[in-house]
Design a protein around this nucleic acid. Structure first.
Lengths: 354, 354
DNA sequence: TTTTAGCACTCTCGGGTCGAGAGTGCTAAA
DNA sequence: TTTAGCACTCTCGACCCGAGAGTGCTAAAA
């Protein structure tokens, strides 16, 4: 397979661009007229035929215009798309919004989802930052009734986990507090492995509590991500390809079933990548539910410390450029925020910063 | 306006029943055939004409069958519907599921939404139990860096609030812990008014912290409900009235915009009620977005202590009987769970219970 | 007075036909 | 290699039409 000619690249780009806007098959004359091409429609037809031959375009029926195939999109995303950054103004506005809520992790994530949905005009998904290995920052035990105790576990990064434990016998709040302090001291900034190693040295109440701590930690470690925050569902229903309720329902099903989503977002071996951002087009042949969809995914955070993902889910005919650049921008922004939170807390009281 | 005759009531009920199942205008002959009525179609036609005259039915066009009007649904719900409880088996299964996760409030709520959506075959919304007046169970202060402190507030009922505070000057973890203990002692089980009364007696660090505590409490008090948990969106998109994407989008918009939802759920002055459960049909003329929708809402919990709402949102042509009975059942179940959690915690260490 | 059979009438819905329009591929000339 | 010309194909919307379902009215039966 030889390289496409420059002209073919231009034409493929234009077809995709046009199709993304109009959602209708694009024909040769139309193309020439709209983009004031310096050649005749017949020439364009030649090239269209060639691109069709190569599998990058197809015709819904003979004597209709062309629409891009999955292959076409893939080639476009991996070779032709030019990195376009968001306008300075928007970047600044968005940064400012994040700055205002830099203290509340949940707020970032919501905001990120909202911005992403708005900019890409599709559905967005964002997972909160998730520590690679959960590390304890603080442990608290609060007596509720008799043998029932509320355990609150603050993790480094600000995540809070709670669990109710039922002890073998009632224990006073004083004892509980002491136990909590003791264990906090012992395990501060430790991850599950370190705690497991020390487990044999414990006794009495501590053992019981630590068992629960361990279960929470391993559970947290195992979970690829907590909740997934969604936004912009309506954007995606507005798309013409989903007017037939058939497709619309499948769409919603995908977003409803968190299992699939998590699979999806965590899956890293996707085919087409573009500057750290991965693009999954048309389900890549294996995800049947996504046959008509594309997913653009990026990640953020500090690898090894805490990471999260953010993605855009839209019709194959989506604006990849906008999705990619928004994800890239947000990824940087969120990474900074994570760094701020995590690094500061790992080395407590490490001094003043303006 | 005279009362409807018995026969008219029967026929209205049947029309609604039939229309709910088929979503198609129902005609006289069809009705006689399907329900083996002991009269001729001509007689039924007379009654249909009368019911149409009264405004309970209408024809999409002359020479089509009848479909219920909003008035028709209202009359049906308030006068004709017969309370049908869920089958014993289902009740037991559901109770069992709730029993298994009685310790985690978020889990209940999710489960309630899931059950409600499944039983009513429509979209469900459930808010977590929300204390009338937030009362503190435990306060914790955790130093993160320099002047930055993570405040964790455990409320009675198990809700956890966190906020980052920035102090005027760095304070050691010891001092923070002492302060937290002191304030926990002082304010345990108190609500915001009581705390405000004592505020003048405080000094130093405490003042700063208590200010933030107050802001969290008043914020919590003000919020009608926290997050709203949704489920069963796909159920509702499956309905034939929403195949035209126009309506489907409006549907999603409603569920997307939390503001509207909160308004809706908190609004108690709805027209048609049925055994503690309120039914809002077709937007009641004022909610334009809900013109084609109905909402069935109930509440649960302990009035004055902690309450939450649960509702079903579906097409006007929804199975009100099922929605109402499911809501009523779940409402009882959730109320019990709330009682268990709240009452126990209000009187700590009140003894053993099997 | 109420119910019912009969009947003419109305309206929707699905299928079939048809012409306009858009687009193609091919051929032959520039 | 590009382009003008042309015959051909396919979709889409408009239109028509008949079948079917349902109605309201009338007059007879109960």
């Amino acid at each position: 397979m030889t390289e496409l000619s420059e002209r073919q690249k231009v034409i493929l780009t234009l077809v995709i661009h046009e199709y993304i806007q109009t959602a209708a098959p694009v024909g040769s004359q139309n193309l020439v007229a709209r983009y004031k091409l310096d050649m005749s429609s017949a020439t364009v037809r030649h090239e269209l035929a060639a691109l069709t031959e190569r599998g990058f375009l197809r015709q819904p029926h003979t004597s209709a215009g062309r629409i891009p195939t999955e292959e076409g999109y893939r080639y476009f995303v991996s070779r032709l798309i030019r990195a376009s950054d968001l306008p300075d103004m928007t970047r600044r506005t968005i940064s400012h919004q994040f700055y205002q809520m830099r203290h509340d992790v949940e707020q970032w994530v919501r905001l990120a989802a909202s911005v992403l949905a708005h900019q890409s005009r599709a559905a967005s998904l964002v997972t909160p930052p998730h520590p690679e290995k959960a590390r304890i920052k603080h442990l608290e035990l609060i007596s509720t009734r008799g043998r029932q105790v509320l355990m609150v576990l603050v993790l480094i990064g600000g995540e809070i986990r709670q669990q109710i434990l039922i002890l073998d016998e009632p224990v006073s709040q004083e004892q509980l507090s002491q136990c909590a302090d003791r264990l906090t001291q012992l395990f501060q900034a430790q991850e599950s492995d370190a705690i497991r190693a020390r487990q044999p040295q414990l006794s009495g109440l501590d053992v019981d509590v630590v068992n629960h701590v361990m279960s929470v930690l391993t559970e947290t470690d195992a979970a690829v991500s907590g909740e997934v925050y969604l936004d912009g569902l309506t954007n995606v229903l507005a798309e013409p390809e989903f007017t037939g309720s058939e497709e619309a329902r499948r769409a919603l099903r995908i977003l409803d079933e968190r299992s699939l989503l998590q699979d999806l977002v965590s899956r890293t071996a996707l085919s087409t990548t573009h500057g750290g951002v991965q693009v999954l087009i048309g389900g890549e042949g294996t995800w049947d539910e996504l046959r008509q969809w594309s997913l653009v995914v990026g990640s953020y955070g500090l690898p090894g410390l805490a990471t999260g993902s953010l993605g855009v889910l839209g019709p194959m005919r989506m604006s990849y450029g906008r999705a990619i650049s928004t994800i890239r921008f947000l990824s940087g922004l969120l990474s900074d925020l994570v760094a701020e939170t995590m690094l500061d807390e790992s080395t407590p009281n490490s001094g003043e910063v303006n």
